[in-house]
Design a protein around this nucleic acid. Structure first.
Lengths: 139, 139
DNA sequence: TTTACTGCAAAGGGTTTGCATGAGG
DNA sequence: CCTCATGCAAACCCTTTGCAGTAAA
């Protein structure tokens, strides 16, 4: 997703498009994925030195409920994912690096459908992590 | 897993079997699944009024690294799962209730294997959540 | 007896909140 | 203009840490 699309999506939802919100969105969407809240804060502060962590949290909540980013809960804080396609997060338990793996065969979807079907849950979203050692940390 | 098995597993690993540790294990394993740390603390305090939250965290770390329980990271704190079989957690985004769904066909396993294979990660464990509304909260 | 665990207290880090000021539509 | 977002500060968890006393093996 790019800048113009973010602005459009916010407007469509009647949410104000502010410079700070766009800066947060660009920090996350611009290349580097899976940033922590602190990392986002540090980046946005380069452009808005007076912005506070409260505004970052506020904006992340807005972007999340607008379907633009996705929070990934971890023991030591939330990271944000910009990949809204169904996918799996490969998490390195040594260095913390996260890699996305696309769900080529649609197995994730199938699994989610089946599970919700036989449980009576009305499914909204799902999330899969695999923990292990990345190639670099394996050696 | 039952009381005697927990004690045995700890001993096997050279970890001391204390009354407090057994109380924590029993609080989690005894029927009610997916407790928060605070809920575990409250229960154990009925038997050990002077126990502190620090000891609860210490014990949860011991039980986790002994493969007896599994931490589930959530935005507002960790819950603990006693189901060590491969399964999916159905999480109600309204009431917070969590239900386990067994991985009948081994799809989860297959998915994990494939993902680790094509990424070069050395896989240790995996974890899948589905978010939605439980039958009670759907109506 | 030796070593690891407990209880206590304090600190650390992530996240939320209340309120006056300021900017978007 | 009116409403909502920002910045500032303080508060609120959740979790970790250091240390002296205590219990397990």
């Amino acid at each position: 997703m790019i800048r113009a699309e973010v602005a459009q999506e916010l407007r469509r939802r009647g949410i104000r498009v502010t410079a700070q919100r766009m800066a947060v969105a660009e920090a996350i969407l611009g290349g580097h994925e899976h940033l922590t809240v602190q990392e986002i804060y540090q980046r946005v502060k380069e452009r808005f030195p007076h912005i506070t962590i409260g505004t970052i949290y506020n904006t992340l909540e807005v972007l999340t409920s607008s379907g633009i980013v996705q929070p990934l809960p971890f023991p030591r804080g939330t990271k944000y994912d910009t990949n809204m396609e169904p996918h799996i997060n490969l998490v390195c338990i040594r260095c913390g690096h996260i890699e996305d793996v696309r769900d080529e065969e649609g197995l994730l979807q199938r699994l989610a459908q089946e599970a919700s079907h036989c449980s009576g849950y009305r499914t909204v979203s799902h999330h899969m992590d695999i923990y292990g050692f990345c190639p670099r940390c394996s050696s």
